[in-house]
Amino acid sequence: MSLFNKALASIGIGSAQVDTKLEKDKVTPGGEIRGVVHIKGGNTEQKVDEIYLGLNTTYLKESNDRKINVPVVIDRFRLNEPFTIGPGETKEIPFSFVLPLDVPISIGRTKIWVSTALDIKNAVDPSDKDYLHVIPNRLMDAVLNGVEDLGFRLREADCEQAPYRLRKRLPFIQEFEFVPVMGSFRGRLDELELVFFQVSENETEIYMQVDRRARGLGGFLSEALEMDESNIRFTVTSSDIPGLRQKLETIINKYS
């Protein structure tokens, strides 16, 4: 019977089960995630080589003139040394880890989740999947609100393959695309794109692309040659928050 149970466990029937419980699913970049991994033994004794948590998302990548969704592991955390779990035995393994600053926020089609996997030799590895709701931190939220206060509306936010000049640790960037719907920039700009590169919780570098609206023949020629776009890099800190709207307006005005 034991050999039969082992054979079933090797194809995932009657093997150990894993269930991860998070203390909370709402967190900001740089925030701490806490939880417990619950493991229940199957019908036979099994050796678990390791338990690891993966922080995951997907991003859009161009391939053969079309965009495809590509899964990516943002970070990975090993929780334990090898152990053996007996039939029907239960174990609880608490954990905590800090969310990296470059994790994207949960907006639009962007989903972030924690995957839990048990590494068991000669068997189908049990796994679990728990979604996170990653929200902007105080500084990032102030920038996004400041842009909206200037009359822009967020049209789209996606994780896309990073061009070489913007590539850092991860192969993608999260791009926020705004359009002017009111205020002084309506009629002057086509769109405004932002990318955040978090330096710390209190400092972020921003890559901004200002896309000016074509005006007359010269404007249309500039647009055709992609000369109607300006790319700007600047840094904001928490101390900028009280005057952030004015700082953003000054920068956008300079290139619009």
Results as ranks from 00 to 15, higher is better:
1 M>E: 03
3 L>Q: 13
4 F>W: 12
8 L>H: 10
11 I>M: 12
13 I>Q: 12
15 S>P: 01
17 Q>M: 08
21 K>A: 08
22 L>C: 13
23 E>T: 12
25 D>W: 04
29 P>C: 09
29 P>E: 09
31 G>H: 08
32 E>V: 13
33 I>W: 01
35 G>T: 07
35 G>S: 03
37 V>G: 02
37 V>R: 01
38 H>Y: 12
41 G>Y: 04
51 I>Y: 01
52 Y>S: 06
53 L>C: 07
54 G>H: 00
54 G>F: 00
55 L>Y: 04
57 T>G: 08
60 L>W: 10
60 L>G: 05
64 N>E: 14
65 D>P: 02
66 R>V: 09
67 K>D: 11
69 N>A: 13
71 P>S: 08
72 V>K: 05
74 I>L: 08
76 R>G: 05
78 R>K: 14
78 R>C: 01
80 N>V: 10
81 E>Y: 12
82 P>A: 11
85 I>G: 07
86 G>A: 13
91 K>H: 09
91 K>E: 11
92 E>L: 05
92 E>G: 00
92 E>V: 01
94 P>Y: 10
98 V>P: 00
99 L>H: 03
100 P>D: 03
100 P>V: 02
103 V>R: 00
104 P>V: 00
105 I>V: 15
106 S>G: 08
106 S>F: 03
113 W>C: 00
113 W>M: 02
115 S>T: 13
115 S>D: 14
118 L>G: 00
118 L>V: 03
122 N>P: 02
125 D>F: 01
126 P>S: 09
129 K>C: 05
133 H>T: 15
133 H>S: 14
138 R>N: 09
141 D>V: 04
143 V>P: 00
143 V>I: 13
146 G>C: 02
148 E>C: 07
149 D>M: 06
150 L>S: 04
151 G>F: 05
151 G>E: 06
154 L>N: 10
154 L>Y: 11
155 R>I: 05
157 A>K: 02
157 A>H: 02
158 D>R: 14
158 D>P: 00
159 C>G: 04
160 E>T: 11
160 E>V: 15
161 Q>N: 08
164 Y>L: 14
164 Y>E: 13
167 R>S: 14
168 K>I: 05
169 R>L: 10
170 L>A: 04
171 P>Q: 12
173 I>P: 00
174 Q>Y: 10
179 V>Q: 11
180 P>T: 03
182 M>L: 11
183 G>N: 07
185 F>P: 03
187 G>S: 06
189 L>S: 02
191 E>S: 12
192 L>D: 07
197 F>M: 03
202 N>H: 11
202 N>Y: 09
204 T>E: 12
204 T>I: 10
205 E>D: 15
207 Y>I: 07
207 Y>Q: 12
213 R>W: 03
214 A>D: 11
215 R>Y: 09
216 G>L: 08
218 G>S: 12
218 G>Q: 11
220 F>T: 09
220 F>M: 12
220 F>R: 14
221 L>V: 15
223 E>N: 06
226 E>L: 13
228 D>P: 03
232 I>R: 14
236 V>K: 08
236 V>T: 10
236 V>S: 11
239 S>L: 09
241 I>G: 05
243 G>A: 13
246 Q>G: 02
247 K>W: 01
250 T>I: 09
250 T>K: 14
254 K>I: 07
256 S>T: 11
